[in-house]
Amino acid sequence: MKSLNGFKPLAMILPGLLLAMFIIGYPVLDLANTSLQEVSRFGQLRGFTGFDNFAEVFSDPLFWGSLKRTAIWTVTVVLGTLVISLPIAIILNDDFYGRGVARVIIMLPWAISLTMTAVVWRWALNGRAGLLNATLMDMGIMTEPIEWLAEAQLAFTVEMMIGILVSIPFTTTIFLGGLSSLPQDSYEASMVDGATRWDQFRYITLPLMKPFINIAIVLNVIYVFNSLPIIWVMTEGGPANGTDILVTYLYKLAFRFGQLGKASAISLIMFGVLLLFTVIYVVLVMRDEKDTAAGEDE
C-alpha cells in the first residue's frame, strides 16, 4: 500500500459525512430530546420529565401487541421475499426465450410508489366492488366474494403478501448480481463429477451466494420493519388494531392523537431494536464469512 497522509481520505469522506450528520444527525438528537420531555398536543416542548414517556410506552398493551405483529410482519415478509426471489433470480440468470420481458415484468412493482400500489390493491380487493373477487368468481374459483380486509388475520396475511411482492424486485436484483458474478468453472468441474442440479445449488450456488443473501436480509429487514404505506393505506392498522405494527401505531400516536412525546420514545425504541438486530446479525452471521472485502476495520 502506498503511504499517504491520513488527511486525504478524510477529506474525501468529509463532505458526505457532514451532510449525513447534519440531515440525519440533527433530527435524531431532536428526537432523543423530545422523548425525554413533556410535549404539547402540537409538538411544543414543555420541560423534562425523565423517562416518563418510555414508562408510558412500556405499560401500553397496544405497544406490545404492535411489537409482536412487527416481528411477525418483518420475519414473514423478509423470509417470503428471499424464498421467492432466489429461484426467480436463478431462472432470470439462465438463458431462455423471453428473458428480457420477464426481467422487466419482475422489476415492475418497483416502478410505482408503495403508496399507490397500496391504493390500487385496496381498490381491487374491495369485497363487492373490487375486480379481484369478480375475476375469481368469473373463473369459477370461488362462488362467494371474500372480504379480504374485513378481519385482522386475513387482512394482515394479504398485506404481508403484498409486502413480499413489492420487495421482490430489489432482492432479485441483488441476487442476479450475485449469480452472474459466480465463477463458471466450479460448475463445469462439478458436471464432470456427475453432480445433480440440486447438488450444484446446494454445494456451489448457495455457499457462494451467502454474502448476497446476507446483504439482502439486513437491508430488507431494515426497509420492511420501517414500512408504513401498505398497512396504513389498506387498513390503517385496523380493524380493532389487528394489523397495527410499530410504524403505523407510531404514526397514529404522533399525527392523529398528538402524543408526540410517546411517539418519539417509540421511534427510539424501534431504532434500538433494529440496531440490536443488525449488531447481532453482523456478529453471528457475517463475521464467520471471513469478510475479505477491501479495507478491514482497523
Partner: peptide
C-alpha cells in the same frame, strides 16, 4: 346489511 362491515369505509 352487507356482510363484513369492517371492510367497508365510508366511501365503500
Amino acid at each position: 346489511t352487507q356482510p363484513s362491515p369492517t371492510n367497508y369505509s365510508r366511501e365503500n
